[in-house]
Structure formats: C-alpha cells, structure tokens
Design a protein around this nucleic acid. Structure first.
Lengths: 247, 247
DNA sequence: GAAATAGTGTCTTTAAGACAGTATGTG
DNA sequence: CACATACTGTCTTAAAGACACTATTTC
C-alpha cells in the first residue's frame, strides 16, 4: 500500500480521481421576528428547480475564505459581510454526480442590505426558516416562501442550514452575532428581538437589558427612534471590546 | 466562463487539477495537569524529521468521519474514541507540494489508553502542549517533549492544535468533553483537574462540585479510591442525560 | 495522633427574574 | 388626555464564591 506521503511525493494531478471541493454559504438575516436565508433556484439536474444555497467550487489556488466571499458576491450579490466557517459536509453521495466535499460558511447581514440583494434578481429568494427542534439540538430545518409553503431544498442543504442555526444559538451569548444582524444603530428592543428569533424563545426584558448594557459592548448614542406612535426608544451602537473591564 | 454546474455535469476526473483532501486528527489527553497530544515523526520532506498530527488522505468514497477513524487507527494505534470534526484548513500554501485541504478532527482519550498506544511505537510521541494565550483567544501553540524542549511542528499543525484547545475550552461547560478524558470511574477532584488543565486556570472547588453534582451528569458509585496516603475520594460515573430534569 | 485531602454547612456576593411605577412620545 | 411602549427602582430567588469545620484514610 502506498503511503500518503508517497502519494503526494510522486504526485501527478491526472493520476488519481479526487473529490471536488466546494463552499456553500448560508446567508442569514432576521426580519419581522423570522430567521431567513438566501436561496437560489437550480436550473438543471440534479435537483432541478429546487432551491439551494449559493456556492462555488474552490479554485486550485484560492483560499477557502476567498471562495466563500466569491460565492457571496457572484451568487448572492453581496460583499463585505460577516463570514465564518461553519462545518464541512462530505457524505459520499451528497451530490449524485461525483464526490463533492462542501465547506459550509455562514454570513450575517442586516435585513436592509439583504432584501435589496435578494429582490433584484429572478431565481433568488429570501426564505423563512422553520426550526423543528428546540435549543441546542441539531437536524434539518424547513424553508418556507412568503406564503408559508415549504420549499424543496437541494442536496443536504436543509442540514447545513440546521447546523447554522445551532451554531448561531450556541455563539449568540458570547459573540457579536446579534449586532451583525442589525443596522449600525439599533434599539435594545430590536436587539432582543434578534436574540429571541435566533433562540426560538422569548427572553426576560429586564435581565436582557441589564446584561447587554453591563457587558459594555453597547454605547448609547443620545439619538432616538423616529416615527413611532409611542415613546421612541434610544438608539445604541455596538462597540467592539477586546477584554471585559472590571469596574 | 464555465458555471460550477456545467463543471460538474461534464465532469471528467482527469480533466482538471483539483485539491487533495486530507484529515488530520488531534488526539488529546490530560496527564498530570498537562494537556497532551499525539504526534508522529515525519521521515521525509517536506518538514522531514519534524512532528506532525496523524492524518490520511480521504478516499474517493470514504466518509470524512471514517477517514478520521482510519487516521486514528493506522497512525495513532487507537480506535473507538470520541471523535469530532473541528475545522477545515485550506490555505493554498500550507503544503508546499500541492494544494491540500485538511479537515481537522479532534479525539479525546483517557490517558491510560493513549499512553499505551503512544509508547509501543518508535516515531510516535505524546507531546505536552503549552498554550501561550488565555481564555477564548486563538493562535498557534507550542509542543514540548518530556524534558520541556520545544518540538518543531510540521505544516500548520501548531495552529490546528491551538484551534482544538480553543474549542475544548468553549465546549467544556456544556458538553461531555471532561468525562471523555477520564476512565469510567473517577473522583470529582480528578474531573476538576481535567477542567482546570483545559481551561488553564484554577476553579473554585465548592462551586465546581455543586455544579457537577447538581447537573445530574454524574452518579456516585459507593466505591472509593485506593492506595491514597490520605482520605480516599468517592468514585463517580458519568451518566448521559438527554435533557435537564427539574426537581 | 499527625498529616493530608475529602466532604459538609453556612454566610456573603452577584446575577437573574418579577413586578410596580414613572417617563415620553403620538393621536 | 388616552394609549403604548421605554425605562427605572426594588424585592425576590438562585447560583457562585468564600470559608470554617468535620470526616476518613495512611503512616
């Protein structure tokens, strides 16, 4: 048997059959208390006419993060968003044509930006995500269109979106995920709504406010909401903090 | 420009140059308050005579988890351990020979099992890990031999081990990581020591005991330690719990 | 009985939850 | 002024930390 090092040492690209490597990106936003992801409609087999995540094949000299950026741009019409590697999916039969190993990424975008990107192209859609499990469990999710009808998802993309939801739930507390899904200025109520949507459960308002304000990750701007038929809330800004400061 | 689907549709394995896909496994154990990983000595360029993680090239029809299992067996002399996907490393020049995308896994083993596996083969070593950063930061780590001398690590394996440490720190509280690193029966003091080693900081004894016992993930056996020159601690067993039970 | 660590009980401190009450915008 | 939501203050509850004290083993 040939060792791996020998394999690589006497390596001729055309000698061996090797897997194709792709990246798929789960573009996430939160609108109206719903978690939404960007899907593109397939136009050929396999899974013709079904919905899929934007993805590209990784170039031979292309870093993985760059490939994910490229998928976001060319297939999603977006650039410069928060982007992070999620998990690598490599079941041998996940693509019926050939072995395709997909490195999944997720991107977080404020709804204003994403709605514009999704709307301007046919065959692109902002689907609502229904999560049929609670808390930190895992599993596939359902994607629904505006009318609430289930969309057919290609490949293992329902699993990939499910893994994204789980990751978001896990990292929400100690990361900046919540802020990435909001515009630069936001009210604490909006931030709480984003948290509740991701977690799939309501949160205690008082302790949420205390936690966020005391964490020091947020700064009051003095500005207030406008066009509210009731008392407008103060707007806050996210402030990056390298380290927790004791008072 | 050819689309990805066209690429896959008219796919001929020998047409295109494509990356090689490998898995590397970080086999972790905790001994004497030290975090240790299993390394194998390289015997040819590149990085000849340096130390590397056990890894294999993923077979064309091989699931990723199976490839990790295989790396563990053939290169690590171990089987049937806790094994989980960590992160995928794909910088274009991480292997100077050709593009190799590596899906990193980590395995957790109780020290008794691993010491035996590591000791019986030349060119295999259980290195101590020195983590030069605190908390949930990331970065490369150092690997030291028994005498405390730094070992040279091949490829980006110092980064991969660093990412493992970070992941362990993040998941320790809410996962079963701590138990996987201990024999079936263990004292609470041993469990605390494992936690402290992974986190790189001491923990409050009282609250640690309370947390663990109240979590219900642990069951007293009635047995006690033996051969202790002082009062022996009670031994506990890990009990898997699907859901937190309110009392 | 000395030494050393295991284990228990209780007080203090801190964070979370509950809830009443005040503030401030629109109509 | 009514309404709706933002915001504040305080009480209660639960978890974490601190620490004194008791228990159990070996030598």
């Amino acid at each position: 048997m040939v060792s791996d090092d020998e394999f690589l040492e006497h390596y001729d690209p055309t000698d061996f059959d090797r897997p194709t490597v792709a990246v798929d990106v789960v573009v996430v936003t939160v609108v109206d208390g719903e978690l939404r992801v960007l899907l593109t409609r397939r136009t050929e087999p396999p899974f013709d006419a079904m919905w899929a995540l934007p993805g590209v094949i990784v170039g031979m000299d292309e870093p993985l993060d760059s490939a994910a950026e490229r998928a976001l741009q060319t297939k999603g019409g977006l650039a410069g968003t928060f982007l992070e590697q999620l998990f690598t999916f490599g079941a041998p039969q996940r693509d019926p044509r050939t072995r395709v190993i997909s490195i999944a990424y997720y991107a977080l975008v404020a709804p204003e930006r994403l709605a514009a990107a999704a709307a301007d192209t046919e065959g692109r859609l902002l689907a609502s995500v229904r999560v049929p499990w609670a808390g930190e469990e895992v599993g596939p999710v359902e994607a629904l269109d505006e009318r609430g009808d289930a969309l057919l998802l290609a490949f293992d993309h329902a699993e990939i979106i499910g893994a994204t939801v789980r990751r978001l739930r896990g990292k929400l507390d100690y990361s900046n995920i919540g802020f990435e899904l909001l515009p630069r200025r936001f009210s604490l109520r909006e931030l709480q709504s984003v948290h509740e949507t991701i977690l799939g459960q309501t949160l205690n308002k008082d302790s949420f406010r205390r936690r966020i304000v005391q964490s020091g990750r947020v700064k009051a701007t003095g500005q207030r909401e406008t066009d509210r038929p009731y008392r407008p809330a103060e707007l806050y800004e996210f402030v990056r903090r390298s380290r927790k400061v004791k008072s």
